[in-house]
């Protein structure tokens, strides 16, 4: 294990107990010269109450949809001045929804920035509303009967932008996430990581279970870890689960969370089909970008 001993997020910050963002932010500590750009979301709160700030790196709070564009401007200015910097946008799935055109635009321009979407699969900071990446059938305050729409594959869409680096990651596998961030630090240009971040209050599970549930998502195949840097590879934590028979039954993942309470057998079958389709996509990508 070579994980950071310290976090850029200092103790005594406003994050909830067992917050997955706090875990993800720990991993960011492997990057040097970080300037963190934070759109509205949970991390707006986690950042602390003035005059104190929770981060040991510079943080710029910005409006929801603007983050990746602000980061583009920062990166351009640092480049102009010859300042060494890793401009990192740390956003949730909400900012990724509202600012999607901004992410896409910056990706097309191949801006020299790192974008991490810490995805807790709903708009948590405003009180658990459904997002583009909310899991199939999950109950949120705007989908009280369970989400009926599709789940958007953000990393897949970013892959189609042909940027230098795209990966999925999980707060349950910090070593894998850190390895990916280290890889990211060796590459220039637009780098995108979609981080799976189970949220205790939002998904209704005990704060001690964040890591366990994140791992169950991977073990059940519901979240697939992969990496693309010109080559597409399924990451080691997910590798065993290419073989469907090795996977933990999806029910094991689903039953741990209040957001899935009351799902019918039919619902679960439907979700399994969706998960299968996702595996098909990922395996096809692996073959395509060998």
């Amino acid at each position: 294990m070579s994980l950071p001993m310290e976090s850029i997020l200092l103790p005594g910050n406003p994050a909830c107990q067992g917050c997955p963002h706090a875990l993800g932010l720990r991993a960011l500590s492997v990057l040097e010269n970080v300037v963190l750009v934070v759109p509205a979301g949970c991390t707006t709160i986690i950042s602390g109450v003035h005059p104190k700030a929770s981060f040991s790196v510079p943080v710029l709070h910005v409006p929801f949809a603007s983050a990746v564009a602000v980061a583009s401007g920062l990166a351009a200015a640092y480049k102009q001045e010859g300042v060494e910097a890793n401009v990192v946008v740390w956003m949730g799935d909400g900012a990724a929804d509202i600012g999607f055109a901004t992410i896409s635009g910056a990706a097309v321009r191949n801006e020299d920035i790192i974008v991490v979407v810490s995805d807790n699969e709903a708009y948590m900071n405003t009180g658990i509303q459904s997002s583009g990446t909310t899991f199939w059938k999950a109950k949120t305050t705007t989908s009280p009967g369970g989400k009926s729409e599709e789940k958007k594959d953000l990393a897949g869409i970013m892959l189609m932008h042909r940027i230098p680096y795209v990966a999925t990651a999980s707060v349950g596998y910090l070593q894998d996430f850190v390895n990916k961030l280290r890889r990211v630090s060796e590459i220039r240009g637009f780098r995108f990581i979609h981080l799976h971040s189970p949220c205790p209050p939002g998904w209704r599970f005990d704060s001690s279970k964040t890591v366990e549930i994140a791992r169950l998502a991977v073990k059940s195949g519901a979240w697939i870890l992969w990496e693309y840097d010109g080559r597409f590879r399924i990451s080691s934590p997910s590798k065993p689960y290419k073989d469907e028979t090795k996977r933990v039954p999806l029910e094991e993942y689903i039953k741990t969370q209040g957001r899935f309470r009351g799902l019918s057998g039919e619902d679960i079958e439907e979700i399994k089909k969706k998960v299968e389709e996702q595996w098909k996509f990922v395996l096809t990508m692996e073959k395509t970008f060998k």
Binding site: V62, S66, V68, S72, G73, A75
Partner: peptide, 25 residues
């Protein structure tokens, strides 16, 4: 640096980033 942004929202956001980093934008 000329940034060919995808919208006006991003145009002002990008020059904001550049200006706050210390460059005339």
């Amino acid at each position: 640096e000329f940034i060919r942004v995808e919208s006006e929202h991003s145009a002002l956001a990008a020059v904001y980033g550049a200006a706050i980093a210390g460059r005339r934008a």
